[in-house]
Design a protein around this nucleic acid. Sequence first.
DNA 1: ATCCAGGAAAACG
DNA 2: CGTTTTCATGGA
Length: 282
Amino acid sequence: MSSVVLTYEQDFSLDQTLGCGQVFRWDRDDKGWWHGVVGDKVIRIRQTGNRLTFKGASSSWISRYFSLDIDLHPVLASIDRDPVIHAAIRQCTGLRLIRQPVWECLISYICSTNSNIPMIRRRIANIAAQYGKEIMFEDKRYFSFPDPSVISCSDEHSITHCKLGYRTPYVMDTACMISDVRRWGDTITAQPFGEARRQLMKFPGVGPKAADCILLFAFQKYEAFPVDVWIRRIMHHNYIKNLNTASALTTKEYDSIRLFAKSYFGDYCGYAQEYLYAARNR
DNA sequence: ATCCAGGAAAACG
DNA sequence: CGTTTTCATGGA
């Protein structure tokens, strides 16, 4: 078991960060221990005050995954522009955007459409149990998230156990597109925001919302501002009064919301989005 | 039964 | 081009 002591500048909350809905493979027990699978690692971690205690990964890995290397104060100061976002920041103190593995994040948000978080979690767990490698950790079984080639080479029948619904062909076809491209994520990382977004949206099942989530959670492109039904409501209620929320969210309205957010909150509007989302109704 | 959930694609005018 | 319908699943 290793531990690191957080400095004041790091201002980190493990519970806020893992519980806000940005990631789907972590669970918290009643004693405050979190267990999660990231890549082929199983990690056990807990926070007591300013100390993180964990096993399953190195200190440098933990620091990078949870973005502890980023000074949060100037980020939050830049988005803290009004009482609404200010209250959300105070309510969710220590929430950080983590660095997710890109391939798993891509599939996760393809699986997220028109669903609630428990359903998304179940689908991803099903995919890992069906195709991942078994990992024993403290006498319990966990499953890594499978590589693209494992899914693309599988038969059509086995994936039906994952209960992906109409998303099944999206996941299969995306796996096929990725499986023969080595380190495809590097090409996305190298692109500026707009071009990276367009390239992500070429994958079947990836529209504006999924692309923005992937850019934010896996590629650290903090100018992304994902607009889901919750964020749309929050923005309508607090920032943009003349939205017609009775009808479906069109591409034009989606862009008007995210571009407003970009100009209003600035280059870290993605952080504003996540604080507003995390503070939605708790 | 009806509606909703971190939407996207296809079909329709 | 913008708008409407369909898609599969499970919980409330």
